[in-house]
Design a binder for these strands. Structure first.
Lengths: 225, 225
DNA sequence: GCGTAATTTTGTGTATGCATTAATAAACGC
DNA sequence: GCGTTTATTAATGCATACACAAAATTACGC
């Protein structure tokens, strides 16, 4: 399951986690620049581990290091989301297909099922944040079941980029009722060992999600930028 | 085209290039360990830029940094290649599909066509190295034409991993004659604006490549490990 | 001899200092 | 005043120093 959590708890690692959190929370605004020294001060460590963290986050596409200008928190455009969703669509669909090929039992799929139930509950309770969290869990678990560690890594990376865009559009999006139908159908197809169906449904699911999100981002852009 | 080549020529960047080269050439053998200090000495610089380079290469999956054990050059297993090819298959197929959707002209596809011709020529001349290089160019160009920068990045990353496996199996693999038929068919489908065909053919192409390579790797493993 | 504790060695993670050079401000000619 | 050149400032990239902890080695008890 969690195969690689042996890296102690270096400052560099803490810097990665904290910077990510600061980016997701908006404390480091999209498009803003920050000197290495400033970040080091804010995190209470020297430039070295901050630099290493920034290097990693740069490779993940969350920020960009520009000599003398500081690290720039990358903004997320509708075009970016189109790219990201295209990747997610392909790789998650494959994961669903592969998961369905493996003859998994209800027990294996327990976490997936739990995520679906959580989403249902969150919708009933009108708790969009909880819904988003459960939705993330569903997708992460689906990819895990696909059994390809590289897909898991890439999807996690792309999901991070999506998460930022979603955070700002969460309350603008329609309540995702239809969405959970898809989730249940994917679940059923995997349990039934039907790869083609699992793939097809998840694919359409992601396609729609992409269109909804990019649509909203484009509207927002017209108003705010 | 080359959108981001403004990074000067830092030592860190040189370290990335040189380490990559050393890994591909086998100068740093798969599975071997190397202390940061050793690498720094060999590259004629201090540990700092070497460390930054290693961090990047770690995120690319070429090596692993283990506290006190040194930098381990990751070996490539058949299972790894199966994962990598699955990713390549999905993303390159999408790139082919997207390329076909864009209504590209013969001129736009010139580089792709050139790569195909080069492969043909290399096969006639029995120059497997040249063929491999041209094949790489074909795939890189195809992905470029797909117009998704993230796919380009991921494919480049995965291709690096494949390149290492290919280097050791190049002369074991059958001469790829059928392969170029696929390439030409993909080319034709893109030019004709037929996304579905472009996708389907490229998909099968990659699937076969995967089976050939993993098959050989498994055989090798039986003998050498 | 052999298992265990003490000691030394060694590599990493981090802090720090500094040279380089880009960016900015100041000085200057016109 | 304004464009150009020079001086100043400041941020990075890198080298270096060092503390800490893991590993290896030795010393020791039995």
């Amino acid at each position: 399951m969690n195969e690689a959590r042996r890296k102690p708890i270096s400052n560099a690692h803490r810097a990665v986690l904290q910077l990510r959190e600061m980016i997701f929370s908006g404390e480091l605004a999209a498009g803003s620049d920050h000197l290495e020294t400033e970040l080091a001060d804010r995190l209470g460590m020297s430039r070295t581990p901050v630099r290493e963290a920034a290097l990693l986050l740069e490779s993940q596409g969350l920020l960009e290091m520009r000599p003398r200008k500081g690290v720039r928190i990358l903004p997320v455009s509708a075009e970016d989301m189109r790219e990201v969703y295209d990747v997610l669509t392909e790789l998650e669909s494959l994961a669903a297909e592969r998961a369905a090929e493996r003859g998994l039992t209800e027990q294996d799929l327990a976490a997936l099922h739990a995520a679906i139930d959580d989403m249902e509950r969150a919708i009933s309770a009108d708790d969009l944040e909880a819904w988003a969290a459960a939705d993330d869990r569903f997708h992460a678990e689906l990819v895990r079941l696909g059994g390809n560690s590289r897909i898991r890594m890439i999807v996690a990376m792309m999901s991070d980029q999506v998460r930022r865009a979603k955070a700002s559009t969460l309350f603008l999006r329609p309540v995702p009722v239809k969405s959970n139908e898809d989730h249940r159908a994917v679940y059923a197809a995997i349990l039934a060992g039907d790869p083609a169906t699992a793939r097809r449904i998840h694919r359409n699911h992601r396609r729609q999600a992409r269109d909804v999100l990019t649509g909203i981002l484009e509207q927002m852009r017209l108003r705010t930028l």
